[in-house]
Simulated assay, not measured.
Amino acid sequence: MGIREDMPLLARHEGVWDGVYTYYNAAGEKIDEHKSRLFCRFPEGGEFPYHQTNHYLWDDGRTEVRDFPAAYRDKRVWWDNELIKGWAAEVGLDEYNRTVMLYWQRQGDPSLYLYEMIQLADDGLTRCRTWHWIRNGLLETRTAIQEKLVSRDWAAVEKEMEAQTV
């Protein structure tokens, strides 16, 4: 079996997602917020069966793009790149089949790790994500993310974005 068959919930995330990331410190005070566009892909062939690209945009005009190609084995997606090392897995105990969990650690900073929970709406059109950043066993930051599906056809949206930048 392949990634789509072994991880059907994650496969439902394929497409382009627009959202907002809001960051809170341990005291619950908002410390940052930015818009996002994520491309979640399951490319046919190639080295990586899962590939996510995150585009971030702040109100002050700053932008950032992060690329996360991932391996697949043991019913998990695995990242190991210059930024993070970790995994994603569906939560089998969720009888509603809505929950994906992620764990990752920042490369070069073993005192900081993160757990993420993703909840996909039953209609597959929206999702919310929560990150807990933990340093030395203490909560440092929470990130709340609200997203809506823009298109399942990530390749067409990528082509459209490329045409706009030329």
Rank of each mutant, 00 (worst) to 15 (best):
F48Y: 15
C128T: 14
A70N: 03
V150A: 14
S36W: 01
Q52G: 12
P110G: 05
W87Y: 09
D122N: 15
A27D: 14
R129S: 07
Y72C: 06
D109S: 12
D74G: 12
Q119P: 00
Y23R: 09
R12W: 10
A88K: 00
W154M: 02
G137Y: 08
E95Y: 05
H51E: 10
Q107C: 10
E140H: 13
V100D: 01
M7N: 03
D123Y: 13
R98V: 01
T99I: 14
E90S: 04
V77Y: 03
G108I: 11
Q52L: 14
K159T: 12
L120M: 13
R62E: 09
E90G: 02
D59V: 05
Q105N: 08
H51G: 02
I145N: 10
G45H: 05
M101Q: 09
S151R: 07
L139T: 03
N136P: 01
E82C: 02
A88C: 08
E5P: 00
T99C: 07
A71N: 13
F39Y: 14
M7W: 02
K85Y: 01
L10Y: 06
R135G: 11
A144H: 11
I84P: 02
W58K: 09
R76W: 00
T141F: 00
E82A: 11
R98Y: 07
E47R: 15
D109V: 08
L38F: 09
R98W: 09
E5N: 08
Y115S: 00
H132G: 04
V65Y: 00
K35P: 00
Q52R: 10
Q146K: 11
K159M: 15
A71E: 13
R41N: 05
W133H: 12
H34F: 15
D60P: 02
K159R: 15
D18T: 09
S36D: 13
R73C: 04
C128V: 15
H55Y: 13
V91R: 00
G19S: 06
R98L: 12
T63R: 13
T63G: 00
A11G: 03
G108V: 08
L139I: 06
R37G: 05
D59C: 04
E140K: 13
Q52T: 03
Q119H: 15
G45K: 05
D109M: 05
A163D: 12
E82M: 03
